[in-house]
Simulated assay, not measured.
Amino acid sequence: MPLITVHLLKLSTGVTPAAFVQAISTVSAPLVASRVVRWIITPGTLSKDRLLNTAWDLLVIVPLSAPIQAEYLRKDRVTEQWSITAGAPKSLVNGFHERNERLLRPQTGDVPRLTGSLDKPRMAGSTQGLELTNDLLQWSKDFKLGQDGAVSMLNLLAFKPGKAAHDSYLRYGKAFAESIGASRGGNAKIVGKVVPSQGTTGEDSSGWDEVALAHYPSIRHFTDMLASEDYQIVNHRDRLPSLRDTCILCTTELDPDLQQARARL
């Protein structure tokens, strides 16, 4: 099972996300390079201070076998960093770039229409249960990076002990892949079980169990899902009871062409 490392980076003044990704791509071609946009769900206890006390600029996911070189993580380029390593199925890692480009640059017929859930949305008072709130809905309507561009949601997951919780989340994952997520273009394009003690810079050791990166064709497709009755039934029945902590960070991936560029900081 290939190991991948998820990095959150706060870049130094004057270092742009595009320039940073161009530079590291001369040695290590990232699987994912995304601008950080905002938290959708904040962590309850795990990694709370480390994750929330920094305004992150960039999410980068690389194979552990081809890490970001130390010279690019110096303080003149990166002021803060957080990382976690996970084992991802080989079937997800092999051919990832081709599949991801198709997701980011969809062809005619690839993107499903909205289901209409936003016409009469199911609302809540907090996003912490992965539900739609007035604040999140208004933010999504004002989304500065556009209403039709893809978003990638980084999920960190910590499960309650026992087989029941594990089986409950598996049911949620199956429903997401086959219906409640897929009908909105949702795609769990990276999923991995955390493998601790890999010695990466800024490595997290707080006890997360799994990482996932979920693709949505647009921010509207994401909020359409949260607004729907069919999603929330499964969310409350299978997802929420299985988790002891979680967080979700909204990002937008840099143009895939950047990862092929050859430039220096």
Rank of each mutant, 00 (worst) to 15 (best):
L92M: 15
M225V: 10
P121V: 10
A29T: 13
V151Q: 05
L9Q: 04
L130S: 12
A227V: 08
E178I: 00
V15N: 08
R50P: 00
R171S: 14
V234D: 14
Q81L: 15
L254H: 08
L130K: 09
L31F: 09
T5L: 02
D238P: 04
K144E: 13
G116N: 03
I61G: 01
H236G: 11
W208I: 01
K193N: 12
R220E: 13
Q138F: 06
S12T: 12
R237Y: 07
R99L: 01
A177Q: 10
L243I: 11
D224C: 07
L104F: 04
S12Q: 13
E210S: 10
E229F: 09
R122G: 08
D230Y: 00
S65N: 12
R184N: 06
H221W: 03
P241S: 12
K144L: 15
S12H: 11
F143D: 13
P161W: 07
L51M: 14
S34T: 06
V6H: 06
Y72A: 14
P196Q: 08
I84R: 01
V15E: 08
R122A: 12
R35H: 09
C247E: 00
L52E: 15
R262H: 10
T26P: 04
H97C: 00
A214S: 06
L249W: 02
Y216G: 03
P112M: 12
T45C: 13
Q198R: 12
A164F: 00
V194E: 03
A150Y: 00
F143M: 09
V6M: 11
E210F: 05
R35A: 15
A124F: 10
V194M: 01
L103A: 09
N134F: 02
K144W: 03
A70Y: 09
M123S: 11
L145Q: 13
L130I: 15
T108W: 05
A86T: 04
G149F: 10
E229Y: 08
K141S: 12
A19C: 11
S117C: 10
D119W: 02
G185W: 03
P89K: 04
L213A: 04
D224Y: 04
V15P: 02
V15Q: 14
R35S: 14
V93T: 14
L11V: 13
V195M: 11
A175M: 14
I24P: 01
K193R: 11
P161H: 06
Q22L: 08
P106L: 14
L104P: 02
K48N: 09
G44V: 08
E71P: 05
A150I: 03
A86Y: 01
G181I: 00
V6P: 00
V111R: 07
S25F: 01
A212T: 04
I24K: 03
V194P: 01
P256K: 07
R99S: 04
P67H: 11
T54I: 14
G116R: 05
T201D: 11
L114N: 03
G149M: 11
V194A: 01
P241H: 08
N134E: 15
A66L: 09
H221A: 07
V93A: 10
G129D: 14
D255F: 08
V21M: 05
T246Y: 02
T79L: 14
A263T: 10
Y172K: 05
V151K: 01
E80H: 15
S117R: 00
V93W: 04
T223R: 00
F222H: 11
S206E: 13
P67F: 07
R113N: 12
D204S: 10
T5F: 00
R102S: 14
W56E: 06
L136E: 15
S179C: 04
V36I: 14
L114M: 06
A55E: 15
